[in-house]
Design a protein around this nucleic acid. Structure first.
Lengths: 143, 143
DNA sequence: AACAAGATTAGAATAATTCTAATGTTAGGG
DNA sequence: CCCTAACATTAGAATTATTCTAATCTTGTT
């Protein structure tokens, strides 16, 4: 890998743009760049600050406010899932399928747990008139 | 209930003081007052701001910084459990037994779920060399 | 190409929490 | 009982994460 400075291929670009249009979001430069950083890699748990810094490193001209804006917009559209475990920061998870998490207390890192590795055979009903929107299981480990 | 302006009884005072001494904390005025507000009522999920405001209402002379200090100290000593669900605030739970929570998305309120109302029959092992310190199950409901 | 809708921007503003350095209080020894 | 060392408290400044604002710029469409 010497040339090709991670220049998005036309295909990739189109795919991303389509993904955004599919949820009625305009594929603007910054959104495309952020989407590429978020979805162009493996699934990950990223903070706004971390994505911002990735963007700067990648030479994307974007402000932190725009990063927050994009993350929240993507979350509202179901492209991301927001996870709060530590009050000092929110993570955005590119894995929006049903799944759970390991939380490493020392490093503050999150790791996915496929949902079929956890089985709950007894659960309380939602309080009268309400419905469950999500069940989060977080296994905290001391590492 | 007309007289007795929630004046702590000597017994109550002693019990609280003992509770604090038991975890090597000195029963200072502010700590006693905060402990009374926290433990003198039913189990609850309270934020630092809310406890601070309760303290002011009760005429306790304490600063917000001291409230944070006391909450963290109590948590470190195992008298409280800290729960973060919403990145905008931390809750402190006076119930330190194993249990889970309902989270009401609209109101931001938490409600305990006794741990035997949830049964997990399959759980992944902790990653190599690490041990599980806690498992949190949060059932989010749309109310 | 021009327009309206919506997005981006930087920086100010806000909110929650932590830090700091001076001052006050407690527990235990004398 | 009083003194002292150890620890707790205080207010406010500082920090960190996040949101808001109002001006400016882009995008998709005509």
């Amino acid at each position: 890998m010497s040339a090709a400075k991670t220049k998005k291929t036309a295909t990739n670009e189109t795919a991303l743009a389509e993904q955004l249009r599919a949820v009625s979001l305009r594929p603007t430069q910054q959104r495309m760049a952020l989407a590429d950083l978020l979805f162009g890699r493996g699934n990950s748990h990223i903070t706004a600050e971390a994505l911002y810094s990735d963007a700067l490193t990648a030479g994307v001209n974007v402000s932190l406010a725009t990063v927050y804006n994009a993350l929240h917009t993507f979350t509202a559209k179901g492209l991301l899932r927001e996870i709060t475990i530590d009050s000092t920061r929110s993570y955005f998870d590119t894995n929006v399928d049903e799944h759970h998490h390991f939380y490493f207390e020392k490093s503050g890192r999150l790791e996915d747990i496929d949902h079929n590795r956890v089985k709950m055979t007894r659960l309380p009903d939602a309080p009268e008139g309400l419905s469950v929107s999500r069940i989060d299981v977080v296994i905290r480990v001391d590492g």
